[in-house]
């Protein structure tokens, strides 16, 4: 299982964060339940209008970061139609042996009408076909994955919108942080000084107001 900076950039999900672990779990559970050899999460990049492999399970790590155009294959079709797609490789006449996948599911991760990405499952087992029920399960997992990402993005917007404090407050906070890191003796001394300052400020505040 791997993930890339694409996750951080496009999904707003930091590596090793609780959200990343939930997404990994969803891919792992999905792949196990439908008996897939590989599972992956592709992120939608609205600027480039394509998909990028962000997480894989059971698959080659080299896929991470690879771009997939929206006008190709089942992943592109799932994104374009906003529908779960279940398919198999193409063949000419009598089916030939191939090293390619035998069956694929591609489920869009949606929040409302917004496309977040696509969740995929791939099987290389000879004659394997994913059922409509497998597709429904993947569709539901993709919905949950979409909600996880959406919640993270909302939180990030709230944190970003919160007031950061005045420059003086920021400066005090930084100084206190440095002192705290320098050891218990410095911290105790600072605490005593702060108590004295607090007493002076409190006793003079009434006079200023008067």
């Amino acid at each position: 299982m791997t993930s890339s900076v694409d996750l951080l950039m496009l999904l707003a999900v930091a590596p090793e964060s609780p959200e990343e672990k939930v997404l990994k779990l969803l891919i792992e559970v999905g792949a196990q339940v439908v008996d897939a050899d590989e599972g992956a999460l592709l992120v939608f990049d609205p600027e480039k209008n394509d998909l990028a492999f962000a997480m894989t399970v059971g698959g080659a790590q080299s896929l991470i970061g690879q771009r997939v155009p929206l006008d190709k294959g089942l992943t592109g079709l799932a994104a374009a139609t906003q529908e779960v797609q279940i398919g198999a490789p193409t063949y000419t006449g009598v089916k030939q042996a191939s090293v390619g996948p035998e069956a694929v599911i591609a489920a869009p991760m949606l929040v409302g009408d917004d496309l977040i990405g696509v969740l995929t499952a791939v099987s290389f087992k000879k004659g394997k076909r994913f059922s409509a029920k497998d597709g429904e399960l993947y569709g539901r997992l993709a919905s949950v994955a979409g909600v996880v990402v959406d919640q993270r993005r909302r939180l990030q917007r709230i944190v970003g919108a919160a007031p950061a404090g005045t420059p003086v407050q920021q400066s005090i906070a930084e100084s206190l942080g440095r002192i705290a890191r320098s050891g218990p003796a410095a911290l105790a001394h600072t605490a005593r000084v702060l108590v004295e300052i607090d007493g002076i400020v409190t006793s003079t505040a009434g006079r200023d107001e008067a």
Binding site: Q85, I86, G87, A88, T92, A132
Partner: peptide, 21 residues
């Protein structure tokens, strides 16, 4: 009937598809 349907695919090929489509 919409499960494991053998269908035509571009380029003179065939494949199997599942879904309401």
């Amino acid at each position: 009937h919409g499960d494991d349907v053998v269908v035509a695919a571009p380029g003179g090929q065939h494949t199997t598809k599942t879904g309401t489509s």
